[in-house]
Design a protein around this nucleic acid. Structure first.
Ligand SMILES: [Mn+2]
Ligand SMILES: [Mn+2]
Ligand SMILES: [Zn+2]
Ligand SMILES: [Zn+2]
Lengths: 143, 143
DNA sequence: ATAGTAAATGCAATTTTATTGCATTGGTAT
DNA sequence: ATACCAATGCAATAAAATTGCATTTACTAT
């Protein structure tokens, strides 16, 4: 699945700007989520800090990106599945947050359904596993 | 289950100070988790902001409190189950974050085990459901 | 192509949140 | 009572996020 920033913008009625394209390009580079601070480090010379905040927010609103909070309260962003719409995200997969490299993976694992206690109505659910990722456990053997 | 701040401090080899007692008292008032900003609002006159940060951190380290991050990256705190130890938390219950009142509940629901993809080793897992809580759904009927 | 319009951007200022260093206070053991 | 060391408060700093406004830019209509 190739990401085409220009078409994504068209599809969501967003103006085509070089800043918006750059953000999507950067996020599409890797399959793992990227944190706001990382993005800022990478794009800080090209895009103003405030603009980056605003772009990320509109992408989230539009269902282009989904935001995953890590243990430290840092926002991480990943491309949404194609079924996400402006007002309803459908990214109910499990996330994996590596305690070594800090990366957040969108796993191809569905979140099991959970029965809520009486009176509680869940409209969405979020699960994140913490541990050692694929790459880091391979790397540690080598050390 | 009554909370006795003084004994909790003794049990964890922490010095008895009025600030530490106050924090535990405040958190024990309610069964739902309380956010750092709320705590600060309630205790800000009695306890210095920095001291509050430090107390919350040591309580988390010691396994007295567990920290739940909400959607906005705000830290929320709740009393840990008795089985938590200094280096290993055992609070693997589902959390419920109300989209109306923002409260975070520790539900008496265990997190279902999830099979990780090859290479990924999970050491802990975290799930939070979002929706309308007990109290808010009762209140909304009344409106 | 040109001009008009509304939206997006950048910059500066502000606010909020968190961290660090250090002098003072206060709890605990002897 | 004293001494010791940890915990606190305060001030300074750093980091993260938000707001307002002037300028630029993309798109639309002509
Ligand atoms: Mn994801
Ligand atoms: Mn809990
Ligand atoms: Zn890793
Ligand atoms: Zn509620």
């Amino acid at each position: 699945m190739h990401i085409d920033p220009v078409n994504i913008l068209k599809d969501h009625d967003l103006k085509h700007t070089k800043q918006r394209v750059r953000v999507l390009e950067e996020i599409a580079l890797d399959t793992v989520a990227i944190s706001q601070p990382e993005l800022e480090k990478k794009l800080g010379k090209e895009i103003d800090r405030v603009t980056l905040y605003r772009i990320l927010n509109t992408y989230e609103d539009k269902g282009i990106l989904h935001r995953i909070m890590d243990m430290n309260g840092t926002a991480n962003y990943a491309i949404c599945s194609s079924s996400c719409t402006e007002h309803h995200h459908h990214d109910e997969h499990v996330h994996f947050n590596c305690s070594n490299c800090q990366k957040i993976y969108c796993l191809d694992v569905k979140i099991p359904s959970i029965k809520m206690p009486p009176g509680f109505t869940a409209s969405s659910i979020n699960t994140t596993a913490y541990g050692i990722c694929e790459k880091c456990s391979a790397g540690m053997k080598a050390d």
